[in-house]
Design a binder for these strands. Structure first.
Lengths: 146, 146
DNA sequence: TGCAATCGGAACGATCCGATCCGATTTGAG
DNA sequence: CTCAAATCGGATCGGATCGTTCCGATTGCA
């Protein structure tokens, strides 16, 4: 129940990109890496994935770089998670299809996972890059759990 | 963005336990294992964790066994996930406290993760063992994502 | 035409998770 | 009271995934 560090890095990088004129300014992976503290090779790999997912546009060659392909307000955490880690699926039951989980026909739980997935995805889709790039929220810090 | 297989196993086992007279009948890990298809050693390990978390009561000795410590309607997926995988924390930022993630003071994203965690936890807390033990839901199957 | 800077893919290492095995503890029967 | 059976608990081993690093292919400008 934890998303990988790569996803966290990707979010931080995209937020940094959004802060640069809303991502309209062209920048490169190196700049983002030294600005966010993410290791350069890792940042390059993330850029590749994000470009493949269509979240950013990458231009090769001298003076090339990357750029957000959409306004920050239209990019959500759900998009980032799916771009980096693949589809949001809590269990292997729902995405691998029918790779029997040992209980086969007796599994009454499986139909419920989809509802959970939808709820989780909805929670992630409710947070956009624009809101992340803004100042720290005024809401109380609310601890993770007592 | 995927919970471990152990959690899935635990859910299936608890649902099987709930189906036996609402978990009031005393049973053992071996019976649950062969009923759910979970490997026996793994099932025993899960029983240990669930007992440590207080979700089930375990009795040692001949004729002993395990039993749900609470009614199935009061046990949620959030409880199971936390019992098996530890606290629900999407990123290492929020649970490890201050083990600098490289961006330190510049991290404007961190305060938002707590909101995401709360949303995800709420989604998991909305599903109880009682509803999982019931027949397949009448709601449409709703695919994971188009 | 040559060079420089960039993205893209492939190989290595480390860490975490899952499965198996063995020992400690406890109850019931003789 | 002693023995024996059955259970939970911890420790060890193997596998897989993730994260990092290095190298090659491609592109645009001078």
């Amino acid at each position: 129940m934890r998303l990988s560090s790569l996803t966290d890095y990707a979010v931080v990088m995209l937020v940094a990109a959004a802060r640069h004129c809303g991502g309209l300014a062209r920048m490169n992976a190196t700049l983002l890496a030294e600005e966010t503290g993410v290791p350069l090779p890792t940042a390059q790999k993330l850029v590749s994935r994000l470009a493949a997912a269509g979240l950013i546009d990458s231009t090769r060659g001298t003076g090339g770089g990357i750029r957000l392909s959409r306004p920050p307000a239209t990019i959500t955490l759900a998009d980032v998670v799916e771009a980096v880690e693949g589809p949001i699926a809590m269990t292997s039951c729902v995405d691998a299809g029918d790779h029997d989980c040992g209980i086969a026909g007796n599994c009454r739980v499986k139909p419920h996972w989809n509802a959970v997935n939808q709820a989780v995805r909805g929670a992630l889709a409710g947070v956009t890059l624009a809101s992340l790039a803004a100042e720290a929220p005024a809401r109380e810090p609310m601890e993770v759990e007592a």
